[in-house]
Amino acid sequence: MLAACGTTVSGHPTAARNPVTPIVSVDGLTKLLPDPSQFPTRYTALVLPADTAKQAADDLNGYLPGAQVDPSACAPETPTAGPVAAVGNDDTTRATLTVVLTRSTQPLSTLRNQLQGCGTVRLGHSGATSVVTTQLDPPPPANADDSLAIKRTVGAENSRTGLTRTMQSLVGQIGDVRINVTYMTSGTASDSEALDALFTTALRKVRKG
């Protein structure tokens, strides 16, 4: 998992979809995660305990708790509940697919606007500086109120090859449940097909409640 303390963000806003508002209870978030058996083939999956789920969510955002964020407005939102998470590992490519669910009172457009305005962000922690670069791609078609597609790299300044993490994330919101599905690797591999499939599965699971 990532341990980062710096960020660069760029992208383009897109219009939100027409909202629908099924709501699930706070206590039901874990039940909305895809089952490990629903992860794409090659990914050995498990549901993470609460403390590890929080670390995983921070890693996917590229942030460490307590890091100095510059600009400070680019710090990630604190969810109203969660996170809960399930992660699948591909032992061949050493890549991961992670599903993180949280509850948020803010629409996904708030995150979109934040990323648009955070061009370059540096995060300092324990004397080190990390840089996260984030790009907004066209959102995927999704059975959700709204969705985002995000490309992100996280690494220390002047990182050597292999020390920078690359992530592709699909993010959706259904009611107050935010769904983040991320493919992460330290190499050059990608698996858009598995990412798309797991995102669809995760949305379907949340939609069913």
Score class of each variant (00 low, 15 high):
Leu48Glu: 09
Asp58Ser: 12
Thr30Phe: 00
Arg94Thr: 14
Gly119Ala: 14
Ala75Cys: 01
Leu64Thr: 14
Ala85Ser: 15
Val69Ile: 15
Gln114Lys: 14
Thr92Val: 14
Ala73Trp: 05
Pro83His: 07
Thr110Glu: 06
Ala85Gly: 06
Gln38Asp: 14
Leu46Asp: 09
Leu32Gly: 08
Gly88His: 11
Ala75Met: 03
Gln55Ala: 15
Gln114Ile: 04
Asp27Gly: 14
Asp58Val: 02
Gln55Ser: 13
Thr120Phe: 06
Asp35Lys: 15
Pro40Phe: 09
Gln55Lys: 15
Leu108Ser: 06
Arg112Val: 12
Ala53Gly: 05
Gly88Ala: 11
Gln38His: 11
Pro65Ser: 12
Leu48Val: 12
Pro22Asn: 06
Ser104Asn: 12
Thr102Lys: 08
Arg112Leu: 05
Asp90Gln: 09
Ala57Gln: 12
Ala50Gly: 00
Val100Thr: 15
Leu29Met: 06
Leu108Lys: 10
Asp59Glu: 13
Gln55Leu: 13
Thr30Pro: 02
Asn61Met: 08
Leu115Cys: 01
Cys74Asn: 03
Gln116Glu: 05
Ala73Val: 08
Thr98Ile: 10
Ser109Gln: 13
Asp70Thr: 14
Val26Gln: 07
Leu97Met: 12
Thr52Ala: 14
Asn61Thr: 08
Ala95Met: 06
Pro83Thr: 08
Val100Glu: 02
Leu60Tyr: 07
Thr21Glu: 01
Leu32Phe: 09
Asp59Val: 03
Gly28Ser: 15
Ser37Met: 06
Asp91Glu: 11
Arg42Glu: 01
Thr80Trp: 00
Gly82Asn: 05
Asp70Tyr: 04
Asp51His: 14
Gly119Ser: 14
Arg103Phe: 07
Tyr43Glu: 07
Thr44Gly: 00
Thr110Ile: 05
Asp91Cys: 00
Thr80Gly: 11
Ser37Asn: 10
Leu97Ile: 10
Pro22Ile: 05
Thr110Met: 02
Ala95Phe: 05
Gly117Gln: 04
Asp90Pro: 11
Val26Leu: 01
Ala57Val: 03
Pro71Gln: 08
Val24Thr: 13
Val87Ile: 15
Asn113Leu: 10
Gly119Met: 04
Ser72Gln: 13
Ser104His: 12
Thr21Asn: 12
Leu29Tyr: 05
Ala86Arg: 10
Pro22Trp: 04
Gln38Thr: 11
Leu32Asp: 06
Leu32Asn: 09
Asn89Cys: 02
Gly82Ala: 08
Arg42Ala: 12
Thr93Cys: 02
Pro76Cys: 09
Pro83Ser: 08
Arg94His: 15
Gln68Asn: 09
Ala75Trp: 00
Leu46Asn: 11
Asp27Leu: 11
Thr98Asn: 09
Asp27Glu: 07
Asp70Pro: 00
Glu77Ile: 07
Leu60Trp: 05
Ala56Arg: 12
Thr80His: 03
Thr44Cys: 00
